[in-house]
Amino acid sequence: MKKTKFLITTAILGIATFVAIAADHIDAPAVDGGGTSSLSDITDFYAFQGASGNTIAFAANVQGFLSPGSTGSATFDENIMIEINIDTDGNAIEDLVIQAIPRDGKMYFFGPFPANSTNLSSTIGTTAANQGSVDITAYGQNAIVETVGGISYFAGPRDDPFFFDFGQFGAILGGTASGFNNPGTDSFAGTNVLSVVVEVPKSMIGGSGSVNTWVETKRKQ
């Protein structure tokens, strides 16, 4: 794959030690809830320790509010790169990145590798030592997972895992409610997202696994 410049369209921040969650459905300034901009919409970002204790999993979800009827035809946009940024020294500047780019039914991964840029544009890390790919799992099929060099990869549709009560949130903003109900109503129940998941040995990202991490989507220019 040739080196191509990508420019940022939307971003979301999370802080990861053992478990971190950040979510933002159609709230970024460049996302209007429809058209091509919604294809780059980041809905959730999760970072958590793997079952063995020696890895960290990063899970980035895009294209929220997919109904079961439309999920089968939903696809990752080949002009959009998902870039996971990892800050290992606490200065809120990425030291390592992991890039995910879809092509012809596969998701290609590059990294983690040292960030070649800390501004709004990025170049595909085609010379990165860590590279892998996985077939994108089709809707309704068993998850396809590939492991290369100790790094595991997945890409495909999943049930939206984020729980949020939009109705109650609106009531709080409108002054007709003072707080959320327990458990409230899951506004995302029955909807899907497209997910990219990378599980990386801690030894590849600083050893302790205590990092700051955030995800960006960047459109090809």
Rank of each mutant, 00 (worst) to 15 (best):
K3C: 04
E94L: 10
V197L: 13
M107I: 03
S133T: 02
V198K: 02
I8H: 05
V211T: 05
A57T: 15
I15D: 15
L13D: 10
G206E: 01
F76A: 09
T118P: 09
I26G: 01
K220F: 07
F164D: 08
Y46A: 06
N192A: 07
V215N: 10
N212T: 06
D32H: 14
T36V: 13
R158M: 13
P157R: 05
Q131M: 03
N130Q: 12
G179L: 04
S152V: 11
N181L: 11
A177Y: 06
I12S: 06
S133H: 01
E78Q: 12
P112G: 13
A100I: 02
A20I: 00
V148W: 07
S133Q: 13
E78W: 00
D44E: 09
P157Y: 11
P201A: 04
V134E: 01
L96H: 04
T17D: 08
G72K: 06
F169V: 01
F18C: 09
A23I: 04
S40N: 10
D104F: 07
N119V: 06
R219A: 04
T176N: 09
T9C: 12
D24W: 00
G207N: 10
A47I: 05
S70Y: 13
V62C: 00
I15L: 08
A143H: 13
A47N: 09
G206S: 04
F154N: 07
G149W: 10
F169T: 03
A47K: 09
A30N: 12
N212C: 06
A51D: 14
D159H: 08
L194E: 07
G111V: 09
T126G: 04
D89N: 15
D135M: 11
A189I: 06
A171Y: 08
K3D: 12
F110E: 05
L173A: 05
L194R: 04
V193A: 06
G50K: 03
G170K: 06
T213K: 03
G35D: 01
G174I: 12
V200A: 01
T176W: 05
Y46F: 14
T43Q: 12
P161H: 04
T10C: 15
D32N: 14
F154C: 08
S67Y: 10
F188K: 03
S122F: 05
I172E: 00
G53D: 10
A51T: 07
E83Q: 14
S203C: 04
D104K: 14
N119H: 12
I151K: 05
A177N: 05
Y139W: 11
I151N: 02
G206C: 03
N192I: 03
P68K: 03
L173Y: 10
N192V: 03
A22M: 11
L120W: 12
